[in-house]
């Protein structure tokens, strides 16, 4: 079966005063229908930019995007308008992602008006109520303004708005990181229920590793605009091949007082994405970097079945990282 979405060599560069900022640099992946791809990485690694480029909120610099087998990298205004119905986004901050001057009803109704989905206002109103029921918003809140609602309810509005056009694919851009933990669970469960019922496909962007583990089928780890490792969720938490992934996952706290897990502390700061040198971008912080890491960028290769990694030394390190792991504790 052809994947719902496929991205090949996607690049997004921004011109800045001091050079070309490589926000997304040569990223490739595909997502099957009805599954979730989690994208993790630290702040500024280009994960949000990736989501926005796929949705054409930003235009890609290079590369290709296929949706249902169709090349949608370059689309005209009309095609884009149609495409919006199939691809939607849920934003991170429910406080700034909804227009404070519109009521809940108006916000959810807006996409339906723009796309002229229903002939009569009655049908449209009916659909809005249906959507509010779907996402668990009480109908009485229809005339409330966003500032009267809490973060969880506001995020439900964002979900209802994204759902209103019956999309097949939704980019969830850190949809729960602005919410407190009890509300996070509610929203995540809602997203999972919706996926089951409506057969939705998600890209779930986050820096919260426990969330991504819970919701994703596949996980891609990004570092400085590049995908450094990608495999299915279970495999990634069991068997990391890239030193960065390893360090990232070692940061998850384990709620066990006797468990003295080894935390891998990375040295230094994330290097600049502006005009990066032709070397492994992680090499300056990597505990295992050697001469060959500084010469040319590593390619994302299928190291093990459906386990991709972009590290030149993954084979050597696979054994070593487990054996002589006490790097820094």
């Amino acid at each position: 079966m052809a994947p719902l979405l496929e991205v090949k060599g996607l690049k997004k560069y921004f011109k800045t005063g001091s050079g070309l900022l490589h926000a997304v640099d040569d990223v490739s992946f595909s997502i099957e229908k009805g599954t979730t791809l989690g994208i993790v990485g630290e702040s500024g690694c280009g994960k949000s930019t990736l989501g926005r480029v796929i949705l054409h909120l930003l235009e890609p610099t290079d590369g290709q995007i296929f949706f249902e087998g169709r090349d949608i990298t370059r689309v005209n205004k009309k095609e884009l308008h149609e495409l919006r119905k199939d691809m939607q986004i849920i934003f991170q901050d429910p406080y700034s992602s909804i227009n404070p001057r519109m009521t809940v009803k108006e916000i959810i109704e807006e996409p339906l008006i723009i796309h002229n989905m229903y002939k009569s206002a009655d049908e449209r109103r009916h659909r809005v109520q249906e959507l509010m029921d779907t996402v668990g918003l009480a109908r009485r809140l229809g005339n409330a303004y966003p500032h009267e609602l809490d973060g969880g309810r506001r995020q439900r509005i964002g979900v209802a708005r994204a759902l209103s056009l019956n999309p097949k694919f939704i980019v969830c851009d850190e949809p729960v990181s602005a919410l407190d933990v009890s509300i996070q669970a509610q929203i995540i469960n809602l997203l999972q229920d919706l996926q089951r019922e409506l057969g939705l496909t998600y890209i779930f962007i986050t820096h919260d590793l426990s969330v991504v583990r819970h919701i994703s089928n596949e996980i891609g780890v990004m570092y400085l605009g590049q995908m450094v490792e990608k495999t299915n969720a279970r495999e990634l938490f069991k068997n990391q091949l890239h030193p960065y992934t390893k360090a990232l996952l070692s940061a998850i706290p384990v709620p066990d007082i006797h468990n003295k897990s080894k935390r891998i502390i990375l040295r230094g700061e994330i290097s600049t994405p502006i005009d990066p040198a032709d070397e492994c971008r992680f090499s300056v912080r990597c505990n295992h970097a050697c001469e060959q890491c500084r010469k040319g960028q590593p390619q994302l290769v299928e190291a093990e079945p459906n386990h991709f990694v972009a590290c030149k030394r993954w084979q050597e390190l696979k054994g070593r990282m487990e054996a002589d792991a006490p790097m820094e504790v």
Partner: peptide, 8 residues
């Protein structure tokens, strides 16, 4: 951005 995403 949300308005752009819904095609406004």
């Amino acid at each position: 951005e949300a308005a752009q995403a819904i095609g406004a």
